[in-house]
Amino acid sequence: MASSIPVSVPADAVALAAAEPHPRGRAMPWTARVGVAFVLLLAVAGAAAPWLAPYDPTRQALRGRLGRPTLAAADGKSHLLGTDHLGRDVLSRVIYGARVSLVVGLSAVVVGGLLGSALGIGAGFRPGWIDSTIMTVADAQLAFPFILLAIGIIAVLGPSFPTLIVVIGLSGWVSYARILRSQVLVLRSREFVESIHALGGSVARVVLRHIVPNVLSTIVVIATLELARAIVLEATLSFLGLGIQPPTPSWGGMVFEGREYLDSAWWISTSPGVVLMLTSIVVSRTGDWLRDVLDPTLRGE
């Protein structure tokens, strides 16, 4: 709601608030630790996929199709998560799939974060037509089932890594813009900003040296929550056949491929799906925790 008046959170105030006795305390709860560990594990798995994955994720073995998860299959090879309809090792594909999810997710968050932060700070700093234009576009985008727009754009441009990253990035800029705008609106009227103006500090100096550091923790919180959303959106688009194209393994695409074999080979869809679900839960939980520690005023946004 545009009518709510958010409280500004300059960096010093955050430090003060954190110093006060807080029911949760500053220590990382075990859920957040597990979360960070899980994300690190995924990142390592993705980066070291060629060494970690037991098999080539695209190598087909038609004689070993739809093999059950087993430690010792008939052909003397072990497939911990079974094989798919083309005899490819599901575990290897899940490990390689982490690459796609993390690369697309992180890049999309960078695109959306830079765009949204720039527009949000601009809107908060320059009231008038710039502000109202940006906010009207933001409202219109929120008024739109974005998945339809994403499908439309990708259908036009053809699915590729850059297209996916830009489309998913564009889907997320609004949250940064709206929240940062309201924080900057408050910040720019505070004494320290006005005194820099009075001393002749340029706009660029005020924004880069004084506004950005004050909203950085907010950006980090939104970016973490956005990462979970970006990963799920990539998987959803790949599931609909508009994301990463076969044979490159992606979690969403694997769930789609396994859909026809749900009654005979449930592991094809379930393995990547469960990893995807865990990733999403863990990343957004970490985001919730970061928000509580860094910027409690964001709760409920």
């Binding site: 769930v255 379930t270 679900m277």
Partner: peptide
């Protein structure tokens, strides 16, 4: 938490 984070298509598949 699961309902909010899990992808809709996978909830359907499950």
């Amino acid at each position: 938490l699961i309902g909010q984070s899990a992808p809709t298509f996978f909830i359907g598949i499950l």
